[in-house]
């Protein structure tokens, strides 16, 4: 625990005035259960995600990534600190698509809009648009079981994005909990590229949870490393500084990317092995 210190590679960005803050966590803690057997999943987490920013939360299994994401999603309440989300309803995606098997792809995408009480025509228009965005235009009438794993996860992405269209204005926020973890390598590769495309097209802030360093380095503008039990922010790396201009790769390409992957992997290993020692 003492081996790694809090070092934010570009601390001035955290309070950078030119981009609005979409999510701010201050001293967030979450423990489960009470008494001596309680589990402290998160402790003193400070994190700010700016509008349009792509942040990857990286950490070993069980370090509290999902817990953190659930707090931001409003599916759970922190036991300490505060979570402020300045966007409308966030779009949430899980590892499994979680599509309703009795609804067609289009009606699945319409679900958040139905919950929000939108009219049939408006729902349909938004759903068609979002299905086009994830390249599933014309597949809307299919049921989940008639789609491949990758297609299902894209329907789930479209449905998540529909949450950001439920009327409340504001910056879109996309929360993803290891969304490609259950896919094969080829499909995952394609979907990562698709996600970057959708991110650029929508200008959404993304909080992407993963335990895969490569995935984090490929996708993120900023990688946040969490320690385990309790989960704390250990270190951050700013890889790209797009400033929202379409993600021009100022950050790692080729050699630099390999170097950063190496560095983050080393840090992750250090965090994990510090657990075995005490």
């Amino acid at each position: 625990m003492t081996a790694v210190t809090d070092t934010t590679t570009s601390p001035q960005r955290a309070d950078s005035p030119e981009r609005e803050v979409a999510v701010r966590l201050r001293g967030v803690g979450r423990s489960f259960g009470a008494g001596p057997r309680s589990v402290v999943a998160l402790d003193g987490v400070d994190l700010a995600v700016r509008a349009g920013e792509f942040v990857c939360l990286l950490g070993a299994s069980g370090c509290g990534k999902s817990t953190l994401l659930n707090l931001v999603a409003g599916l759970d309440e922190p036991t300490a600190g505060s979570v402020d989300v300045s966007t409308g309803r966030p779009a949430v995606m899980f590892q499994e698509p979680g599509l309703m098997p009795w609804l067609s792809a289009r009606r699945n995408v319409e679900l958040p809009l139905r919950v929000a009480g939108l009219g049939r025509a408006a729902r349909r228009a938004v759903a068609e648009e979002l299905l086009d965005l994830v390249r599933l235009g014309g597949q809307g009438s299919r049921r989940p079981h008639q789609l491949s794993g990758g297609m299902r996860q894209r329907v789930a992405l479209a449905r998540a994005l529909a949450c950001t269209r439920t009327g409340a204005t504001g910056l879109p926020l996309l929360l993803m909990d290891e969304p490609f973890g259950a896919l094969d390598a080829i499909t995952r590769d394609i979907l990562q590229a698709e996600l970057l495309r959708v991110w650029r097209a929508t200008g959404a802030a993304v909080v992407f949870v993963t335990h895969d360093v490569r995935e984090a380095v490929r996708l993120a503008e900023r990688v946040v490393l969490l320690s385990s039990r309790p989960g704390r922010v250990v270190r951050e790396w700013t890889l790209r500084s797009s400033g929202g201009d379409g993600g021009a790769a100022l950050g790692p390409t080729g050699v630099a990317e390999a170097e950063v992957t190496e560095e983050i992997t080393t840090a992750l290993r250090e965090v994990i092995s510090s657990h075995g020692r005490h």
Binding site: R135, H145, Q146, L147, S148, G149, G150, M151, I186, T187, I190, A193, E194, R197
Partner: peptide, 17 residues
Amino acid sequence: ADGLADVAAGLDALDTP
């Protein structure tokens, strides 16, 4: 992006039940 679309479409075609 077009190349990506083609690959994605190919994957969908191969992988659809």
